[in-house]
Computed example of a mutant assay.
Amino acid sequence: MEIISYCIENENDYAAAVERFGVSYQQIYSWVRKYNEKGIEGLVDKRGKRKSESEMTEAEKLRTENRILEARNRRLKTENALLKNSRNSKGGGTERSKTRISLHLCSENARRWVCNNRDL
């Protein structure tokens, strides 16, 4: 906040703030812009934090639901391919069995992702 105050008090002299505080021009500019747009709340670090459903816009809710459905669709396609391969396979250590194992692992990863992201 000290850097932002200094910059604003000196008529947005970013170069002086860079020299005084040793922070990059882009960073100071970004902080001042966020402060001017949203006040102190604009400076809160929100990286890696998900919005609750009540904070999401309708478009964000739809995008989230779409991502979950796409992951589910990929998982089901993988499972279908796995089932087809297992029906057509006559056993043995062929390339086909390696494919089945890979498909199974992909399916498990997709299933875990969907289960862990249901609340998005």
Results as ranks from 00 to 15, higher is better:
Cys106Gly: 03
Glu11Phe: 04
Gly39Cys: 00
Glu2Thr: 06
Met1Val: 02
Ile4Cys: 01
Arg112Glu: 10
Gly22Cys: 00
Gly42Tyr: 05
Arg72Pro: 06
Thr78Asp: 05
Glu79Pro: 05
Arg20Ala: 06
Glu19Tyr: 05
Asn117Val: 01
Arg87Pro: 01
Val44Asn: 00
Ala71Asn: 14
Lys61Thr: 02
Gln26Ala: 11
Lys61Ser: 10
Val32Asp: 08
Arg100Thr: 09
Leu69Phe: 06
Leu62Lys: 15
Ser54Phe: 09
Leu43Tyr: 08
Tyr25Ser: 08
Ala81Trp: 06
Ile3Cys: 12
Lys98Tyr: 01
Arg72Phe: 07
Gly39Gln: 05
Leu43Pro: 10
Leu69Asn: 10
Asn85Tyr: 10
Glu9Asn: 14
Lys61Gln: 13
Leu76His: 11
Glu65Met: 06
Ser102Gly: 13
Arg96Ile: 11
Trp31Ile: 06
Thr57Leu: 09
Asn66Gly: 04
Glu58Lys: 10
Trp31Phe: 09
Lys77Val: 05
Asp13Cys: 10
Gly48His: 03
Cys106Leu: 14
Leu69Arg: 15
Ala16Leu: 10
Ile4Gln: 05
Gly92Gln: 14
Gly42Phe: 03
Ser54Ile: 03
Val18Pro: 06
Val114Thr: 13
Ser5Met: 01
Asn116Cys: 03
Leu69Val: 12
Leu105Lys: 15
Val114Gly: 08
Phe21Thr: 07
Cys106Arg: 15
Met56His: 00
Lys49Ala: 01
Trp113Asn: 01
Thr57Met: 12
Ser54Pro: 03
Glu58Tyr: 05
Asn66Trp: 09
Asn66Arg: 15
Val44Lys: 14
Asp45Leu: 04
Ser97Thr: 08
Ile101Trp: 10
Thr64Val: 11
Leu105Asn: 15
Leu83Gln: 14
Tyr29Cys: 07
Leu76Met: 15
Glu95Asp: 12
Ser102Asp: 12
Leu62Trp: 09
Gly42Met: 04
Val44Thr: 15
Arg33Asp: 07
Tyr25His: 11
Ser89Gln: 07
Arg33Tyr: 12
Asn12Tyr: 00
Glu60Ile: 04
Ala81Pro: 01
Glu70Ser: 08
Ala71Arg: 14
Leu62Gln: 13
Glu19Met: 13
Leu120Val: 04
Leu103Tyr: 08
Glu58Met: 05
Ser30Gln: 11
Glu37Lys: 11
Leu120Pro: 02
Asn88Asp: 12
Lys90Trp: 08
Tyr25Ala: 08
Tyr14Thr: 02
Asn85Lys: 12
Val114Glu: 10
Ile3Gly: 02
Met1Cys: 06
